[in-house]
């Protein structure tokens, strides 16, 4: 008998907790409000089903508890009831799945006006690369990472105007769709900004992607969401979403491969001169 009370209390607790708890989504900062809506809808549908099943069970437990003179009924099956329940469940599932697939289609279809940003993950830091004026990322070879910056090819002309950001912080332009092109040089990582809702793994050997349109200025944390070794929880970075002016200012400060190479050349010449 206590079990009946406990079940009812747990249902009430769960429902109240869902509404009252201070723990929910962090405020969204990207154009993925559909995901939030779908999630809320799923929460409501599953919440109703949960409460209905649990309360019905509690009622059955109360009504058909063992007591003197009470006997169970013999009832092998009820095809009609099973069909109705199956149909109702199917409708609920389709109601959740169909919009989910539509949004997924949007999630994997990058709009044409998206700018490309490459994210490079390594144990345990982030780096970024912008394609520069020609809009193309230069070729890279992972093993050359200790030879040239980012392992960039010295013979690919598209590489020289690439903007290299060997820092855990990337700036994004407010309202501009960006295609995040993801690459790892060692193990699996996952680029996750909770406020963006979107995430995707970085897989060594292949290039993965997702896209996002920042809708709110501010500084957001990048965290790694795929176990990548002892330093996993320290692999953090920042995304700064800015208005155009601030963004351009930041962009102007970043160095291209050509500039970097020239500087390194000077450095090495100076080094050679000094050591003479």
């Amino acid at each position: 008998m206590i079990i009946i009370a406990i079940i009812i209390l747990l249902v009430i607790f769960s429902v109240v907790f869902s509404f009252m708890s201070p723990w929910g989504f962090v405020p969204i900062a990207a154009d993925w409000s559909e995901i939030d809506m779908l999630l809320d809808a799923t929460l409501v549908i599953t919440g109703v089903v949960f409460a209905a099943v649990a309360l019905f069970m509690a009622y059955a437990l109360y009504k058909y508890r063992n007591r003197a003179g009470h006997r169970a009924e013999f009832e092998p099956e009820n095809k009609r009831l099973e069909l109705i329940l199956t149909a109702a469940t199917s409708i609920g599932i389709i109601a959740m799945l169909a919009p989910g697939l539509v949004v997924w289609n949007k999630y994997i279809t990058v709009p044409d006006d998206a700018e490309t940003i490459e994210v490079i993950g390594q144990q345990w830091s982030w780096a970024f690369r912008l394609p520069g004026e020609d809009g193309r990322l230069g070729a890279v070879t992972t093993q050359d990472i200790y030879e040239t910056p980012f392992g960039l090819s010295a013979v690919d002309l598209a590489a020289y105007d690439d903007i290299l950001i060997d820092d855990n912080e990337i700036h994004l332009l407010l309202g501009q769709p960006v295609k995040m092109v993801l690459r790892s040089i060692d193990v699996l990582h996952d680029f996750y900004v909770p406020q963006f809702r979107a995430k995707m793994d970085l897989v060594p050997g292949i290039v993965t992607y997702f896209w996002v349109t920042p809708t709110r200025t501010g500084t957001f944390e990048i965290i790694c969401a795929e176990l990548c070794g002892v330093g996993h929880s320290e692999m953090r970075g920042y995304v700064v979403v800015e208005e155009e002016g601030a963004y351009n200012e930041w962009l102007a400060e970043q160095e291209t491969y050509a500039e970097l190479a020239a500087k390194e050349h000077i450095d090495s010449v100076e080094y050679a001169n000094n050591s003479e």
């Binding site: 995901i35 779908l38 799923t42 959740m96 799945l97 989910g100 999630y107 979107a198 995430k199 969401a225």
Partner: peptide, 9 residues
């Protein structure tokens, strides 16, 4: 539900 999984995975 694939896209709902994205923020939660």
């Amino acid at each position: 539900n694939v896209v709902v999984d994205v923020p939660l995975s």
